[in-house]
Structure formats: structure tokens, C-alpha cells
């Protein structure tokens, strides 16, 4: 079909569907301009839209092709890019595979090619977010001994988090609740799986949990060296968007314990502490929490 309108392939938002679309793109000459998500795509005039038919067999052949021609690392990139939340990820993956199939393993040296850079960038962002959650996930102990952690990631990082935490907490059942994508990753101390979190009600908090949360918060506040306070550095390493679910960043001002814990032990003499504990520790002067001392960032 020479010189007809540019073809746009639509895929059905699944990984299998996207790879099938890539497969089917090879039957068009010239090659389709792009691959877009069928549900997000706003059709424009002057393009011909063709829905790709999802096929398990075709997807598997594409996967095998990528692994053989471009190498395992390339397949991993394709998969990771697909976990991202970018609307044009279909196009990114499509362009990447098309040139990869032509240049083979040389793709890994073409790090300044815009199509390769685009996929690298997406993967880096997804990987970065997964890394952040490896650091900043906070579990709380729930009734029945299950550990529960809510997260709100931008990208679908659950499949990247589960292996890490399952290996680490091998004898401890837990659940990571991805509120953005409404999914839950569950580890029952034997297998893990990801399931829809529709109607998920996490069990009640275990009795002793609050005590450990407070101890952690107290440790966190104590360990900072006042003479070195550096909000910029903290925010850089621990961006504010993660604070919402961080145990140590909660109860800034409303926790009564906060008021009482203000003078650090090293600022008190042993004599003063004796006096304090006799008078009840909550009576000590409220100097304002460390947070307030730094000022609202």
C-alpha cells in the first residue's frame, strides 16, 4: 500500500498486546509511524488507525527475538519501560525494538541515539522509583502478625519490589499496597503474587506497633546533629513526596511526646534528668520540635 496515510497501530494496554503490535508492524510497508495505547489515543485526521490483535504466540516470538538479537539486558529494558506510567511508552518500546532488531547487540553502545536514550531514561526513572521504595517503605505490624505497607508510586514498581522484600523477609508474611494502581503484592512466606486491591481492608494495627513507631520517630529525631542541620540535603536524598508514608515524618506537632522530648539528653545534666523524671517527663519545657527549629522547609 504505497504512500497511503501514515499507519498507527493501537495496542490493548497489555504487555502481550504491545509486543504483538510490534510483531504485526513488520507486515506494513512502510513501517507504521508509531504504536499507541488504544484506550488513550486521540485519533487524528490523516492517519490510518489499525488495532493490533493480541497474540500470545506473537508476543513470545518477539521476546525470543529480542533476547537473541539484542540480548537479555535489552529485554529487561523493554519490560521495565512497560511498567512505567508514561502514556507514550508504547511508542518508546516500539522504536527501540525496531532499531534494536536492525543493529543487534550494538544497541548497547548507541547510548547517544535519541530512541535508545528515551528508553534508558524511562528505565532509569522506573528503577529510581523502585529504589526509593526499597529505602522508604515502612511496614506496620497488623493483627495476626502480617506486616502491611501502603505506597503511592507513579510507576508499577511492585513487581520490582516483591523479590527484594520476599528474599529479605522470607519468614515474615507481608503485604505491600500500591494505592496508585490499586494492587497488592502479597507474600505468604512461601509464594508471592500481585492481586487487585479492590475493597482491601488492611487488618487492625497490632497492639505493640504504635510503641515501635514512636521509638523509631524518637530515634530519627535524636540522631540528627543540630550543628549540621541541612534541609536541602535531606530533601534531595529523601524527596518530600515520600514523607506521607514515612513513620518518622508523622506527628510533627500533635504528638504530646514530641513536646516532652525536646532537650536532647546530652544537653541535660544527669541531675536535671533526675528532677525531670520525678516531676513527670511531660512537664519539661516545650522548646519546639527539631522540625520547627529548622523552620518549615
Amino acid at each position: 500500500m504505497p504512500d497511503g496515510p501514515a499507519v498507527v497501530l493501537l495496542y490493548d494496554d497489555t504487555f502481550e498486546g504491545l509486543l504483538s503490535a510490534v510483531f504485526q508492524s513488520y507486515s506494513f510497508h512502510p513501517a507504521p509511524e508509531t504504536v499507541e495505547s488504544g484506550s488513550l489515543c486521540q485519533q487524528k485526521l490523516g492517519c490510518r488507525y489499525v488495532e493490533a490483535i493480541p497474540s500470545e504466540e506473537q508476543a513470545e516470538r518477539v521476546i525470543a527475538g529480542i533476547r537473541k538479537t539484542m540480548g537479555w539486558a535489552a529485554y529487561e529494558k523493554v519490560w521495565t519501560a512497560f511498567q512505567s506510567a508514561f502514556e507514550d511508552k508504547g511508542d518508546a518500546v516500539y522504536q527501540y525494538i525496531r532499531i534494536g532488531m536492525r543493529v543487534g547487540r550494538g544497541i548497547h553502545q548507541k547510548i547517544t541515539d535519541p530512541r535508545v536514550m528515551r528508553v534508558d531514561k524511562i528505565c532509569a526513572l522506573v528503577g529510581r522509583e523502585a529504589g526509593m521504595f526499597r529505602q522508604f517503605i515502612r511496614f506496620s505490624k497488623r493483627a495476626g502478625g502480617v506486616y502491611y505497607a501502603p505506597i503511592s508510586p507513579e510507576h508499577q514498581v511492585l513487581p520490582m519490589l516483591m523479590p527484594h522484600f520476599c528474599s529479605r523477609f522470607s519468614i515474615q508474611p507481608f503485604m505491600i499496597h500500591d494505592k496508585t494502581h490499586n494492587q497488592a503484592g502479597i507474600w505468604d512466606a512461601k509464594d508471592w503474587y500481585i492481586t487487585s486491591a479492590e475493597g482491601l481492608l488492611p487488618p487492625e494495627a497490632a497492639e505493640d506497633d504504635r510503641a515501635y513507631q514512636r521509638m523509631w520517630k524518637s530515634f530519627y529525631d535524636t540522631i540528627a546533629i543540630r550543628e549540621r542541620i541541612n534541609p536541602v540535603c535531606r530533601r534531595n536524598h529523601m524527596p518530600k513526596k515520600y514523607w506521607k508514608d514515612l513513620t518518622e515524618m508523622q506527628w510533627k506537632n500533635e504528638d504530646p511526646y514530641q513536646e516532652s522530648r525536646i532537650p536532647l539528653p546530652s544537653e541535660l545534666s544527669a541531675q536535671m534528668v533526675k528532677g525531670l523524671s520525678q516531676g513527670g517527663i511531660s512537664q519539661s519545657p516545650g522548646l519546639g520540635s527539631l522540625e520547627r527549629m529548622i523552620g518549615e522547609e
Binding site: 540522631i223 540528627a224 518518622e248
Partner: peptide
């Protein structure tokens, strides 16, 4: 796992 107010 976390960064204290001093950025460490």
C-alpha cells in the same frame, strides 16, 4: 532507609 534533618 532515611535521612535525618542534618541530611545524613
Amino acid at each position: 532507609h532515611s535521612f535525618a534533618a542534618d541530611g545524613r
